[in-house]
Design a protein around this nucleic acid. Structure first.
Length: 271
DNA sequence: CTTTGCACCTGTTGGC
DNA sequence: TGCCAACAGGTGCAAA
């Protein structure tokens, strides 16, 4: 469900409800997520006040003086702010009960997500320390992309989905960015011209910004923290549109599988 | 070092 | 209507 824009949408939705609130209780109904929810979460988080809520790649960070809650939504995770008295549903695995009477509730049918606790500088955590630049910052440019692509033979689509290259480009937006940049997904990353790298970096920024602006993409089940679906799916040019006409030239959109994930592209607009 | 494929789960969809 | 295979927005890890 969530790529970077959906995570950012979630962050913006929960932030006003969690920052400056104290965590009074942690309820773990099922600790078996991607990694077990650690006992240190409840032990060290309860009594702490959340000082800031941030995003790094697709990780959400809830910071306190004692440490940071790291949350990843995986493929099917979601966070909602509900009253602490709202009865939990199936797959509502973790609650952070807040001093306001609200509760930050983590829901995740597939349980590919994670809720972890890290002390000290969260940037030093092994999960975050090797991440590449945030795509929406100045640190991410065509030149930086070109530099890290040097000598790489992997398909450009898998390349931009590698979080060590650029943090947080997932399957939908990789296809969409390559469409905007006019580049075929299977091209070798290292073979791209400097101009193509520049166009690709711009396209990644553009598609992510636009999707955030529209509250993310809802394909089947993404709901932002207020329960509303995203509106970006109407803007998708190629993702999920195999066989349908390209919006730009009318040629049939193709679905391929470089690696084991679906890629979509227009054979005429992308070279 | 890079590249590839797998594993982890449940739910939905589409074809027969 | 029912059944079953294929597929789904992620990503760390092991193996080559």
């Amino acid at each position: 469900m969530p790529e970077l824009p959906e995570v950012e949408t979630t962050l913006r939705g929960i932030r006003p409800h969690v920052v400056k609130k104290r965590v009074v209780r942690v309820v773990v109904r099922n600790r078996r997520l991607r990694w077990p929810v650690p006992a240190s979460l409840a032990a060290e988080l309860v009594g702490q006040t959340i000082t800031a809520a941030r995003r790094r790649a697709k990780y959400l960070l809830l910071e306190t003086r004692a440490g940071t809650v790291l949350i990843h939504l995986g493929m099917s995770g979601g966070l909602r702010v509900v009253s602490a008295r709202t009865p939990p549903g199936r797959h509502d695995h973790v609650d952070l009960v807040l001093s306001s009477g609200d509760c930050l509730r983590y829901h995740d049918p597939r349980r590919f997500g994670a809720i972890l606790w890290t002390r000290g500088d969260p940037g030093q955590d092994p999960l975050l320390s090797r991440l590449g630049p945030e795509p929406l910052t100045r640190a991410f440019t065509g030149r930086v992309l070109q530099e890290s692509a040097r000598g790489r033979t992997a398909a450009v689509k898998s390349f931009i989905m590698d979080a060590r290259v650029v943090a947080g480009v997932g399957n939908i937006y990789a296809s969409e960015a390559l469409f905007l940049a006019g580049i075929r997904p299977e091209r070798a990353a290292g073979a791209l011209s400097p101009e193509s790298c520049a166009r690709l970096a711009c396209a990644i920024k553009r598609v992510l910004r636009d999707a955030i602006h529209r509250g993310g993409t809802t394909l089947r089940d993404f709901k932002s923290s207020d329960g509303r679906p995203g509106r970006f799916q109407a803007r998708l040019n190629v993702y999920g549109r195999a066989g349908e006409p390209c919006r730009r030239c009318g040629a049939a959109v193709l679905r391929t599988r470089p690696g084991q994930r679906s890629a979509y592209h227009c054979p005429r607009c992308q070279r």
